Simulated assay, not measured.
Amino acid sequence: MSGSRFLVWTVLLAILSFGGASKLTFSSSSLSVETQGTSQIDLKLDNQLNETAVVYFTYQIGDAIEDTEKTLLIQPVPNVNLTTDVTKVTVNVTGVRPGHLILGVNSSAKELEDLSDQFVRVDIIHSSALSIINAVIGWIYFVAWSVSFYPQVYSNYKRKSVVGLNFDFLCYNITGFLAYGFFNVGMFWIPSVKTQYFQEHPRGINPVQLNDVIFTLHAVFVTLVTIGQCFIYERGGQKVSKVCTVLLAGAWLFAFIALFVAVGEKITWLEYLYYFSYIKLGVTLIKYIPQAWMNYRRKSTLGWSIGNVLLDFTGGSLSLLQMFLIAYNNDDWSSIFGDPTKFGLGFFSILFDILFMIQHYCLYRGQNPYEIVNEKESIVNVPSHSNKLIE
C-alpha cells in the first residue's frame, strides 16, 4: 500500500515539474552599454526544459522591428541554445552607436511560454561617466526645486506679512500642483490606469517615477502652508483677481465634467488623467505673469522672495542641462526637440526667473516704496509709521 502511495506522489511531482510550460525572463528590464563596449545580461528559466530549445533575438528601434545589421545599434546577438540541464545563460551585448533599442526574444519551442512580453531596454551611450554625472545633476535639481518653496515661507513668517506676494500666482500654483499630483498619483499607484497605459505602450516606460510623486505631494503641502499664511498675516487688501477666478473656475469645471464622462466610460481613466496634465501645462504658461506685473506696478520686489527665484532658476537650468547631456549621450536629440512642450515650459520658466532677477537686482534694487495694493488693486502710499506692515 505504501509503495502505491509512493508511486502516486512520484507521478504527481513529475506532472507538476514537467507538465507545464517553462517561463524565460531577462534578469533586468534595462541595460546600459557604451559604444564599442560590452555589457552582460542573463536569461533565466524557472525550471529545466525537457528538450533543447533555440532562442533568437529581435531588435526594435522606435516602433519598427529591425532585421538589417546595418541599422542596428548593437552587434547582432547570437542565438542561444537552452539545453535540458541549464536554467540560466549569460548574453553579451556590444554597442555599435548611441541610441535606444528594445531587445526581445523569440523561439519556436512549444515548451516555452509566450515570449512576446519578454524584453530589455538597451541604452547605447557615449560614456558611462556621463550617465553618473546626469544622475547627480538630477538629484541636485530635485533638491533645488524642493527647497525653493521655503524662502518665501520664511520671508512671510519673518515679516509677518504677505504684501508683495501675488495671490493669483498662489492660486495658479496650487491648481497646477494639484492637477499634476492627480496625474502622478494615478499613473504611479492606480493599477487599472497603469494597465491602460501599457496596453497603449506595450514596451514603454511609465513616465511617472516615485520622486515625481514625492515632489508633487511636497509642493502641494508647502503651497497650502503659504496660502495659510495669507489668512493670518498682513496682506494689504490684496485678493485674487477676477481673471484668475474665471480661468481656474473654468479649469476645474472642465475637470468635473470630464469626471462624469470617464465614469460613463466615454473616455478611459488614463485619458482623464492626461486632462490634468494639460491643466498643469496651461497653468505653468501663465502663473508667473501676475507676479511680474505686480512687481512692475509697485516698482519693487519687496515681499517676493528672491531665494525662491534663485533656487527655481538653479533647478530649471540644471534640468535643461541634463536634457542636453542625455540627448548627447544617447545621440537622441528628438528627446528635446521632439517634445517642444516639455522643453518650452522649462525654458519659459527660466526666462521669468531671469526677469525676476533683473527686477530685483537691477530695475528696483534697494527700492522700498512702502506701498500696498488695496482691494481695487490700485497703488496706495502708506505713511512711514506703517512701514512695519511690509518690512
Rank of each mutant, 00 (worst) to 15 (best):
S127N: 14
D353Y: 08
L318A: 08
N206Y: 07
R297Q: 15
N211V: 12
L12T: 09
T284I: 12
D353E: 12
A144E: 09
T268W: 06
T68G: 14
I232N: 01
D63Y: 01
T341K: 07
E391M: 08
T284G: 03
F324C: 01
K280F: 04
L45P: 10
R365S: 10
E113T: 06
N81M: 10
G186I: 03
L363Q: 02
G250D: 10
P207C: 06
A129Q: 11
F6S: 12
V380T: 13
K342S: 05
N329E: 02
Y180N: 05
Q291F: 08
W269A: 06
R298Q: 07
F347A: 15
G307Y: 08
S116G: 11
I306F: 00
Y278R: 03
G164I: 11
D46A: 01
Y59I: 06
F343K: 05
A109M: 06
Y296M: 13
G104W: 07
V163Y: 01
I41Y: 03
K44M: 09
Y197H: 09
A21R: 15
N50E: 14
S349R: 00
V93M: 03
G250R: 11
S28F: 00
F260R: 05
H360C: 07
D67P: 00
H126N: 13
V89W: 02
P207Q: 05
I205A: 15
H126D: 10
V185H: 00
I15M: 09
I227P: 10
L115V: 08
F256T: 15
K266P: 00
N79D: 09
V86Q: 04
L281Y: 15
N79F: 07
V213C: 04
W293E: 03
T245W: 09
Q75N: 07
L355N: 03
Q152T: 06
G316I: 06
F215M: 09
S148Q: 10
G344W: 09
V208L: 07
D67W: 00
Y180D: 07
K194I: 12
F343D: 06
I379E: 12
V86E: 04
M323T: 11
T94G: 04
I41N: 06
A135Q: 14
K239F: 00
V105E: 01
W333P: 15
V147I: 15
Y328L: 09
W189P: 00
L7D: 13
Q40F: 10
V220C: 08
T216P: 02
F276C: 01
G366C: 05
V93Y: 08
P202M: 08
K342Y: 02
D85F: 01
E69K: 13
L170Y: 00
L248R: 05
L12P: 08
Q75W: 00
G62W: 12
S161P: 04
F313S: 13
S27C: 04
D63L: 04
P290S: 06
E265M: 03
F169W: 10
L210N: 14
L112I: 02
M187Q: 00
L73Y: 13
D123N: 14
G303E: 11
V382M: 12
G346P: 09
Q199F: 05
H126E: 10
N329V: 04
N166P: 03
F313A: 13
W189S: 15
N381G: 04
I61P: 10
V208F: 06
G3P: 00
K287R: 07
I336M: 12
D67G: 08
Y172I: 04
G303W: 01
T87C: 13
